[in-house]
Amino acid sequence: MKNSIEVIWKEGFLNEKSLVAPKINDLYNQKSKHLVDKMKRMFKVNLIVIVIMAILFLIIYYFLDAIWQGAAVSVLLLLTAWYSIRQKRSIKTLDHGATSLDYLKSFDRSIKDALSEDEKILRFTYPLYFLIAMSTIWSAWNKGPITSKMYQKYPDVIFIGSVPLFAWIIAGVATLLMFYFSDRIYRWDVGLIYGRVFRKLEETIAEMEKLKQG
């Protein structure tokens, strides 16, 4: 080595053209891209998990000898997956706008629209999942001597179609509660998976707007 590192450094940077700052045109371009890509990846993984669950439930319910309930859960999950794919397509056709801020804003809007649509659908599907689960539990019990034992032990209990009336009432109330609270359950569910990244999206948009104002 001819020169010391100090000399290399000093002489190297004399008249060094590479020290010209890179142009900053769209400061958040790359950042927005990373964020949207991350969210799209998360949606994709979620979709794959739903499809896997649909298959798994069918297998598990088959072994529980409750194939119809399993088929119902699978169909519901596959419908959810199909609906998510439709929503993803609408995100793909989003207007990229003039800047990354426009794009992020329309991305955020489309996600919020999708979530509110999901909320409407899940108002019915959550109670349905619950009823299917109840039905599975009951059909599993019914195969055993539980019903006859209950008949003997509580002869005063009213049965409707081999199900005690109080069980119908509990299931009915729980279903109504699920129907009523479905939006909150869904928001909690979504927050659990996407909460952090949604907050990040909102923070980025807020920061970009502030940046725009100077």
Partner: peptide, 30 residues
Amino acid sequence: LPFAAIIIKICRAYTNSQEDFEDYYQEVCL
């Protein structure tokens, strides 16, 4: 901008490509 040389010198030491360098530079400015 008057301190861009500092930022460039540092970012270059931590990146291995022009793309990464520009990302790092922008993030530092932000």
